[in-house]
Design a protein around this nucleic acid. Structure first.
Length: 308
RNA sequence: CGCGGGGUAGAGCAAUUGGUAGCUCGUCGGGCUCAUAACCCGGAGGCUGCAGGUUCAAGUCCUGUCCCCGCAA
């Protein structure tokens, strides 16, 4: 099938690769414009999808605007039967959506209608879900609201981070995408509207989510740590007054009457902090400002902590 | 040259206005106790990232360079 692909970050790369590998003709790839990324912002960096497309010799388009008709004209020349969108990061105007005869579909990293929005993977873990998945749905005017063509679920491991799940869902999404495209080609695909009763949203992440509230339960805080991994991460300032990032932890199921935020132990095993439900969160890996990540044992050699 | 923090013993951190480079852990030896990641004594381990410069004297001030981290995405 002749397909135009739209995507930007790492998550979309396996989907693009899978389409190419399945033998489809990817006639053009649209990705966000190169932006200065990283510590030295004097050089532009291509998006992961762009790099992948160029490696396959596929023409790449990086429009700043989608609504001025230029992109519509380019698409008409490419003449795709189908448009596949995967984490493109832009809202497509209606005239583009209605252009390809086989429609315009999206790979979304949640079990819609749960977690519409830009950070579904993170919010699934933040909320302590035990299951996640990917959805292939129609792209419609309203964000992430189109009819569902296919879904695949996967359990979330109890200690899995958002980064881990992201990588797994990218693979799962690519697999489900190629299966669905095949069904579209065969004319066997079915569409199911989303149940309005079940809609939830997964808003964009920010550093405002990082500070830990120790009055919450140990598992909730652990979920915060996993869900915000690796960005923006969870942080606390109760050790030295400076905010340290918490990278690794485990819940210890012992009950304590000490108040939330009390530090019961600080040794080579980790730093045990009492949480709001009386259980303990043992910090295993952390990072001081300006420093690099290190084990609790290493951290404690240079940062003495008062045990309460 | 986008902004900022940082490279000091195996690890993590100190070092006042430039003036003998220290602390904790680890490590080695010894002692005490033989329930202890316990405690006591002693030792080893440094060209302070690299290269220049200023100075009687540089971890500290100046210039250049390499690497790490945060902001930003």
């Amino acid at each position: 099938m002749r397909i135009a692909f739209m995507g930007t970050p790492d998550f979309a790369v396996p989907s693009l690769e899978a389409l190419v590998l399945a033998g489809h003709t990817v006639c053009g790839v649209f990705s966000q414009p190169d932006k200065p990324v990283g510590r030295h912002q004097n050089r532009l960096q291509p998006t992961p999808v762009k790099t992948c497309a160029l490696a396959h010799g596929i023409p790449v388009f990086q429009p700043e605007k989608l609504k001025d008709g230029t992109v519509l004209g380019q698409l008409k020349k490419l003449d795709p039967e189908l448009i596949v969108v995967a984490a493109y990061g832009r809202i497509l105007p209606d005239d583009i959506l209605s252009l390809p005869p086989k429609g315009c579909i999206n790979v979304h990293s949640s079990l819609l209608p749960r977690y519409r929005g830009s950070a579904p993977i993170n919010w699934a873990i933040l909320n302590g879900d035990s299951e996640s998945g990917v959805t292939i749905m129609d792209v419609v005017h309203e964000l992430d609201a189109g009819d569902i063509l296919a879904q695949a679920s996967t359990p979330i491991g109890p200690t899995e981070t958002a980064e881990d799940l992201h990588d797994r869902l990218a693979q799962l999404g690519a697999l489900l995408l190629t299966e669905t495209v095949q069904k579209i080609q065969d004319g066997t695909v079915t569409r199911t509207p989303q149940d309005p009763e079940l809609i939830t949203y997964a808003p964009m992440l920010s550093r405002a989510l990082s500070p830990v509230d120790w009055s919450r339960g140990a598992t909730e805080i652990f979920n915060q740590l996993r869900g915000l991994y690796p960005w923006p991460g969870a942080s606390t300032d109760i050790f030295t007054g400076e905010p340290v990032k918490l990278w690794g932890a485990q819940v210890i199921e012992t009950h304590s009457d000490a108040g939330p935020g009390a530090i019961r132990k600080a040794n080579a095993q980790g730093i045990d902090v009492v949480c709001g439900d009386g259980q303990t969160l043992r910090i295993l890996e952390l990072q001081a400002p300006g420093g690099k990540r290190m084990s609790a044992a290493d951290y404690l050699r240079g940062h003495p902590i008062q045990v309460i």
